[in-house]
């Protein structure tokens, strides 16, 4: 029994690691070495793929687009979402419950359903091909999940604490900003990690709203590279590596928040 477990452990580790090893090593190989043996250890190691892709493509621009969109969307959702969660809990009663339900109703509507009318609405508003519009639309779509998770977390903070704050004569803003937000740190971080992954990796909404080359986010850029680098596998895989780097770094340092956030998100989403 024990060794069956061990064998599964190793086999599954190989199943996960082999494709990752393949991508990592390929990005440091010459094309010839890649075609000679896609699984070999790079010999010699070369950073030529990274140099070429940054030369041939406005990679920094794509990176910056993705970073801007992700950071703004996550910040906007955390701010608006935590305000709403706070208000829902403070209002309580029927009004609080109705508001909560109104937001959470959005959880069952995926962007695959709202994509067509969103596309036409954005066109009608003249917001096509605009990163600001992409931020607003993405933030609106993820607000239900944010409100749901944050309300759940904040409910665990004691209500008496909020009451005490308001008896002391502190304004709602002060209670929210000075008391509740600092106490919600870990839950905000977990929600942020979850949102980061969703926004950074999103394909559908950027694909609907963005079309000019200088505004592409990284997943869109990857889709474009696929058409351009039909045979340049190493370059394409280098693009994959570059896209993953920020998430990998965040994952290594903030693993706890990623795991709790993405698990909570899956339990609720």
């Amino acid at each position: 029994m024990k060794w069956i477990g061990r064998i599964i452990m190793v086999l599954y580790a190989l199943l996960v690691a082999a494709p990752l090893y393949f991508v990592m090593t390929s990005s440091f190989k010459t094309s010839q070495a890649f075609f000679a043996n896609p699984l070999s250890w790079p010999n010699p190691w070369t950073i030529q793929n990274f140099v070429s892709i940054f030369d041939a493509q406005p990679m920094w621009q794509y990176f910056w687009n993705s970073a801007r969109v992700t950071l703004s969307t996550v910040a906007l959702d955390l701010f608006l979402g935590s305000l709403i969660a706070y208000a829902i809990i403070r209002l309580g009663g029927r009004m609080g419950r109705y508001t909560f339900v109104y937001f959470v109703a959005g959880l069952i509507i995926p962007s695959q359903v709202s994509m067509l009318p969103l596309y036409s609405l954005v066109r009608q508003l003249g917001w096509s091909d605009n990163l600001g519009a992409l931020i607003l639309v993405t933030a609106a779509g993820l607000l239900p999940l944010t409100v749901f998770t944050l309300t759940g977390f904040m409910e665990m903070l004691s209500k008496e604490m909020m009451e005490a704050g308001s008896i002391d004569g502190a304004s709602e803003w002060k209670i929210y900003w000075r008391l509740i937000l600092p106490l919600s740190g870990p839950s905000l971080a977990a929600t942020a990690a979850f949102l980061f992954v969703m926004v950074w990796n999103d394909l559908l909404i950027p694909m609907l709203l963005i079309n000019s080359t200088d505004k592409l986010t990284l997943p869109l850029a990857l889709m474009q590279f696929r058409g351009e680098y039909v045979t340049d596998y190493t370059l394409l895989l280098t693009g994959v590596v570059i896209t993953a780097v920020p998430m990998v770094i965040l994952f290594i340092f903030l693993q706890r928040f990623f795991v709790t956030g993405m698990t909570a998100g899956s339990v609720k989403g």
Binding site: L80, L83, G106, L143, P144, V147, S171, Y176
Partner: peptide, 27 residues
Amino acid sequence: MNRKTLWFFMLPGLLLYTGLFIYPALS
């Protein structure tokens, strides 16, 4: 508890969510 302030807290999120999510989904 100041109800007016609390509604004011929710307003921006409510507008964003209604305008760019609920309205398009209904349309």
